[in-house]
């Protein structure tokens, strides 16, 4: 109904109004907005840029230079000393451990949450509404309310100081956010596809495997990326379950390193902090479209 040109001309003849922006010429507004946004972005990422610059600075120069260019103080030494960690166990071990935990978390979440999501989205079964409500309820549970009995359970199974408490729950779809993500995704797939497959004689498992799994690649990638980032950043669970430094993930390793050496070697601390963020940033940049779409539909962080 609205012709843009007409409405624009109408707008310009509209009765005198006190518009916050009206005293600013039309052409200037985007420039002002960009200036404000660029300044805000700069403030937001300045700490990250300073972290990066400091990682490449001689430790003695870090706390005298708020700038972003290492200049004459440039060095790679921080990475070399930092990577050795505590001597008897280095960051290569922490990284390998984190990769195993995060990798298995990805596999577990994609597998178990896709299955559960499919059942909730596309199948009819007794207690479906009740179970769905319970599943959604678990999204809101504070993890601290579960921590102690889970600890008792896993320690009685003899799983302390192994990766099992960090990984097995993922294969049991305990991160209900992802189940919800798959439910939302599977609901959008048209019913005609499944009707056709059923007429061809496909059972429920074939329909899931041949139709839904190939179509669900975006949901799987979103789940994979968030699972990886969450597992990589997780600190509380590795802190509780892992005892020997050889089994530490990067987060607990970094915290141990902070206690042990930071007062003497800021440079190495900055370098290892930076390195520990790289996989998250990498995952984010490669999956960002999917991640942004994912949070927009389910509200994940």
């Amino acid at each position: 109904m609205t012709n843009p040109a007409a409405s624009r001309s109408q707008r310009s003849v509209a009765a005198p109004r006190r518009d916050t922006w009206s005293h600013i010429p039309e052409g200037m507004r985007p420039i002002l907005a960009h200036t404000a946004l660029i300044s805000a972005c700069f403030v937001m990422i300045y700490p990250l840029l300073w972290l990066t610059a400091s990682a490449f600075r001689e430790p003695a120069a870090i706390f005298t230079s708020p700038g972003l260019w290492p200049g004459e103080h440039f060095t790679l030494e921080n990475f070399v000393t930092g990577w050795q960690g505590l001597g008897f166990v280095g960051f290569s071990t922490f990284f390998a451990n984190s990769l195993i935990v995060a990798g298995l978390s990805v596999v577990g979440n994609v597998f178990a949450c896709a299955l559960a999501g499919y059942a909730f989205a596309r199948l009819n079964f007794p207690f479906r509404r009740t179970l769905f409500a319970l599943m959604m309820g678990t999204i809101m549970l504070p993890l601290h309310a579960l921590l102690i009995p889970q600890y008792i359970l896993f320690s009685s199974l003899g799983w302390l100081d192994t990766f099992l408490p960090l990984v097995v729950p993922k294969f049991l779809a305990t991160e209900a956010f992802f189940v919800f993500l798959f439910v939302q995704f599977f609901r959008t797939i048209p019913g005609e596809l499944t009707d056709a497959a059923r007429i061809d004689g496909c059972g429920h498992f074939q329909i899931f495997w041949r139709i839904f799994v190939p179509l669900a690649l975006p949901a799987m990638a979103t789940t994979a990326a968030f699972s990886f980032i969450w597992a990589w950043n997780d600190f509380l669970h590795p802190l509780i379950y892992l005892n020997s430094p050889q089994n530490y993930t990067v987060t607990v390793g970094l915290s141990l390193f902070l206690d042990a050496t930071s007062e003497s070697n800021y440079g190495a601390m900055f370098a290892m902090s930076l390195v520990s963020l790289l996989p998250v940033v990498g995952f984010f940049l490669s999956f960002q479209k999917l991640l942004v779409a994912g949070i927009a539909t389910t509200g994940m962080k």
Binding site: Y118, N124, F125, H204
Partner: peptide, 11 residues
């Protein structure tokens, strides 16, 4: 229903 509970089993 049986299929659904099989899908839901891990969860």
């Amino acid at each position: 229903s049986i299929a659904a509970y099989v899908f839901l089993l891990p969860w």
